[in-house]
């Protein structure tokens, strides 16, 4: 699990705070725990994790002050949500966030859904069909590229016609 503060390091400190009956879970790394200071219990004690991470990562052992934030953060182009924000509120901003944050999602989903990260249920009838057509077009385009590279122009023309007719069928459905 990544630290919920910096999203950089493994969280090594896990604890639950209960204030007025409201439960909040914290998962943070040692560096952020130190920065947060007193409000996190046990953060000043020297842990085995500190020792280990010191051995594993040279930069890390340089100390809290010198660890820099990453230069570019994942940010959804559609709704503007950053990965940091997603981690804080635990909600995606739009469908495109799934694409943007994709590299980081598998471990999150696996933790929540007992090791599963891939859908195994219903496929919507109407969009599902379109998805198949889209996938077919992508495959044909790849073949077309290969055909052109190999100078098989007759075959390429055939593929091109196939792609056009599939694209037209999608277009017609949208308008119809």
């Amino acid at each position: 699990m990544l630290c919920q503060e910096c999203q950089q390091r493994q969280a090594t400190l896990h604890f639950t705070k209960i204030i007025n009956g409201k439960k909040t879970e914290f998962h943070i790394c040692d560096v952020c725990a130190k920065e947060k200071g007193e409000y996190i219990p046990g953060s000043n004690s020297f842990s085995i994790h500190q020792l280990l991470s010191g051995l594993l990562d040279v930069n890390f052992s340089a100390g809290a002050g010198e660890v820099k934030k990453p230069p570019q953060e994942l940010k959804c182009k559609n709704c503007g949500m950053t990965y940091q924000q997603f981690a804080e509120i635990g909600r995606f901003g739009c469908a495109d966030c799934y694409e943007t944050f994709n590299p980081k999602l598998d471990p999150i989903f696996k933790r929540i859904h007992s090791g599963n990260a891939v859908h195994g249920g219903k496929i919507p009838k109407r969009i599902g069909k379109d998805l198949q057509v889209h996938r077919q077009i992508e495959q044909l385009k790849q073949k077309l590229q290969e055909a052109v590279t190999n100078e098989e122009f007759e075959h390429a023309a055939e593929l091109r016609d196939n792609i056009r007719s599939l694209e037209k069928s999608l277009q017609d459905k949208k308008e119809g």
Partner: peptide, 16 residues
């Protein structure tokens, strides 16, 4: 809807 993730929801606990 995403082929890999299924129905996309706001909270990751509902996806699929």
């Amino acid at each position: 809807f995403d082929e890999k993730r299924g129905y996309l929801t706001s909270c990751p606990t509902n996806v699929g």
